[in-house]
Design a protein around this nucleic acid. Structure first.
Lengths: 149, 149
DNA sequence: AAAGAATATATGTTATAACATTTGTAATAA
DNA sequence: TTATTACAAATGTTATAACATATATTCTTT
């Protein structure tokens, strides 16, 4: 649906202004969709993101800084996110043997199992994009990449 | 820059998967940029959003529900957002004369003045999109609108 | 080797988000 | 008219984000 109709009665200065609003609105739309899926697994979007990074490293450990670097939302507090995952038994944490300032974070078997359960819902994640085809998705990806420079 | 490089070493299942990550990452990128501007005015992105809606209504009042409906991030707590704006003297709030359940929220002169100050920075807001042209912005807008259905 | 700078992470605090519940008012039905 | 339902907003609570600061460790310089 056209953005103007969804948020009603707002006029935009130009296409760029509309684009800023569109990105914010679309992000919120996407997050709401994702949340419904993640709720089934008692996990948040950010926690899932961390687990994905850890699986990418597995069986190598990741430091807190590595997690911070690769997180989608750079602002978040990786240290305490790991805390929460630890409480759920989804990751392990121990002081690095090479550099005692660092921490080695590794995803547990339980964490890997959870991710593989979520993997089964990949088609559900993709379904949010049912209104566009592969080519259109590619155009969006290319333009978003270009936009950020 | 290509998303794969920015978040490093991640592979995507398909274009749709990349698009989901791209939207989240781009949103974060945009919010960080906006935040730098809003910080100068001691205001948050959500608070600005509410003020914009109220200016659109001005001099008519808006109810809390109207604000909720039109907010970009539907999840937010409009009632307490208005509280914060009230403390800053940017809005007024009184019980509606027609329906005592409702609340009339109106932007104050101070609020309007703040918005007009921020208006002067419109070119700064647009500058975040310096890497794409108007036509490309329009393609993005059309595809995002289409995507949400 | 000692002092100072740099680095990695943790912690404290405040603000805000998320969710459920409560309160007060209006509309509807019996 | 009273009881029931629906509605609008506020409030309480818990979780998380945002920001600054502290702590521990390593690196660099002299």
């Amino acid at each position: 649906m056209k953005l103007e109709e969804e948020i009603k009665q707002r006029k935009f200065r130009n296409e760029f202004h509309k684009l800023a609003v569109n990105i914010i609105y679309t992000h919120s739309w996407l997050m709401n969709y994702h949340k419904k899926i993640f709720d089934k697994f008692d996990i948040t979007s950010n926690q899932f993101n961390i687990l994905r990074i850890l699986r990418g490293q597995y069986p190598k450990p990741a430091s807190i800084n590595l997690l911070k670097e690769r997180m989608l939302d750079k602002m978040s507090d990786a240290s305490r996110l790991v805390d929460r995952l630890l409480k759920k038994g989804l990751v392990e944490r121990k002081i690095s043997s090479e550099d005692r300032r660092k921490v080695d974070v590794i995803i547990t078997k339980k964490g890997l199992k959870l991710l593989s359960q979520i993997d089964e819902l990949n088609s559900e994640f993709d379904r949010v994009f049912k209104n566009i085809n592969k080519q259109e998705a590619q155009i969006l990806n290319d333009l978003l990449d270009k936009m950020r420079g």
